[in-house]
């Protein structure tokens, strides 16, 4: 499969649209009146200073937070209030700002959990294991092994993830999300705390995911170089409000964005 070019994305089909989303926690406004859309096949960056509401936005898309107002349209259907696992079932996967791996499990088991939604065998079959359940486990193991190969983490396959270095944990987390074969992949600061080499690897993985799996990606990232290189379009949040939206070049020159990042002279 070939990735859509810039021109195609500009006119491409909208996968997810959020309209007028507002969210508050006990009087503190996390998001107010935010609207933007994500088109099929693009890398959509969400940037902004700390506390701008980026992660809250992903949490809303995930169904983890429920917005006070606003509408979410996903795959052309208006979404009702849903649980996180329903969002997952509809093809939305996620990685986390602070790595949220299952610490007591091996790399393999962590990535295998991503296959949960695809596994059908019932409890009784799993009790006996031999036969149907074993066949299913092996099928999914093969899929997971392909992801492990792709992410170059074969050597830590059986290591407990709690003991892995941070960069590798981030990679395992990406693998776990990919195992869900998502249509929309939300990446919350996938490169935070990485050195240059690890960042380059991660960029390569993200671009390959986009190109060869044709996955749509929403990306929160602080490294502007990465954002400018990877993303097709950028939305900028500040204090819970959208202040800019457009191609990397447009956003880079936007006065409101420069003010938000560098501060305004009073």
């Amino acid at each position: 499969m070939r990735a859509p070019s810039g021109g195609e994305i500009a006119s491409g089909e909208v996968l997810l649209a959020v309209e007028n989303i507002s969210l508050s926690f006990g009087g503190i406004k996390a998001l107010s009146n935010v609207s933007f859309d994500i088109r099929k096949g693009e890398v959509r960056a969400i940037i902004g200073p700390n506390g701008a509401g980026k992660t809250s936005m992903l949490n809303v898309v995930n169904g983890f937070y429920h917005p006070d107002e606003g509408r979410i349209t996903y795959r052309r259907q208006t979404r009702h209030r849903m649980k996180p696992y329903e969002a997952a079932a509809s093809g939305i996967a996620r990685t986390f700002q602070n790595v949220a791996l299952f610490k007591g499990m091996s790399t393999l088991d962590n990535i295998m959990t991503g296959r949960t939604l695809k596994m059908r065998k019932g409890v009784l079959s799993q009790m006996i294991y031999w036969g149907a359940s074993q066949k299913e486990e092996i099928e999914h193991r093969e899929f997971v092994e392909r992801i492990i190969d792709f992410l170059e983490i074969e050597h830590i396959r059986k290591a407990p993830v709690g003991k892995l270095p941070y960069g590798l944990q981030k990679r395992v987390e990406l693998g776990r999300a990919l195992a869900m074969e998502p249509e929309l992949l939300l990446l919350d600061e996938p490169m935070a705390g990485m050195n240059l080499e690890e960042k380059l690897d991660m960029c390569r993985f993200i671009l390959t995911v986009k190109d060869s799996f044709n996955t749509t990606i929403a990306l929160i990232e602080h490294d502007m170089g990465v954002v400018m290189d990877l993303s097709d379009r950028v939305v900028v949040l500040d204090h819970g409000q959208k202040i800019a939206d457009g191609t990397p070049a447009e956003v880079q020159g936007n006065k409101a964005v420069i003010d938000a990042y560098l501060g305004v002279a009073h």
Binding site: F64, P84, Y85, A88, A93, A100, F102, T113, T116, R176
Partner: peptide, 8 residues
């Protein structure tokens, strides 16, 4: 929380 976001 992560488990639920994985579809569990």
């Amino acid at each position: 929380i992560a488990a639920e976001l994985m579809g569990i």
